[in-house]
Amino acid sequence: MDAKLDKGTEPMYDAPLRKTDVEANATKIAAKDVQVYYGDTHAIKDVSVDILDKTVTAFIGPSGCGKSTFLRCLNRMNDTIDVCRVEGLIQLDGEDIYDKRVDPVQLRAKVGMVFQKPNPFPKSIYDNVAYGPKIHGLAKNKADLDEIVEKALRRGAIWDEVKDRLDKPGTGLSGGQQQRLCIARAVATEPEVLLMDEPCSALDPIATAQVEELIDELRSQYSVVIVTHSMQQAARVSQKTAFFHLGNLVEYGETSQIFTNPVDPRTESYITGRIG
């Protein structure tokens, strides 16, 4: 307990809780009564949540609570799993993303995703970033593409580190660099929402700090949803926090409120380390 508090209050990584008026932002994604089944297992129960534009929303909760599963529903990544079934309504800008007419491919172009483990393709750094724009036809010519790649890498805060070796394989970078490359790769397709599934869990503290800083910058343009194991991280980077437990959304609100004054006793138990 003590150790945990010590770590939590360590000044170097602890950005102060920002009081931002997030209510001013519009709803980007609206989920209503979402149920997810894995075969016979009922993995997500009755989850309703509104995710705001230009806001970092954190999903926290003990492992196996369904936070990652729910995240993957938001860009239909669960479609790639045969046994997974999603019920309920999820709207992006008012459109049902599980509508039969919706092409998951187009959806994922708008709702990008960054994964737990950095997963650069075994290609050059340039090709990694250029991959998305190429398949979506965002560039008219090579010069265009160069510009998009540079912009994405700058936005991924990694341009200065890789600008001299764009033709080197992306797998040769360090873990933190790889993850920022993956973020750059995701923003290169100009998504509207960025989903991040524990983006720092495979990184060391310094790389984590760099990525967290980046997430904060991304907020100005995107709606960011981040799943995290670390409550400190949720507190540092997010404005809104949702706490999941055993497939239920227990509590959703302002990050500052969740961490200082939780309503639900389960949230309090988790935050104080009694469950998890």
């Binding site: 519009a26 800008d93 459109e95 509508d99 187009q106 959806l107 509207e192």
Partner: peptide, 11 residues
């Protein structure tokens, strides 16, 4: 804004 961020609808 309902119906698309970049002006394009998902449908």
């Amino acid at each position: 804004y309902q119906g698309g961020g970049n002006g394009s609808s998902l449908v």
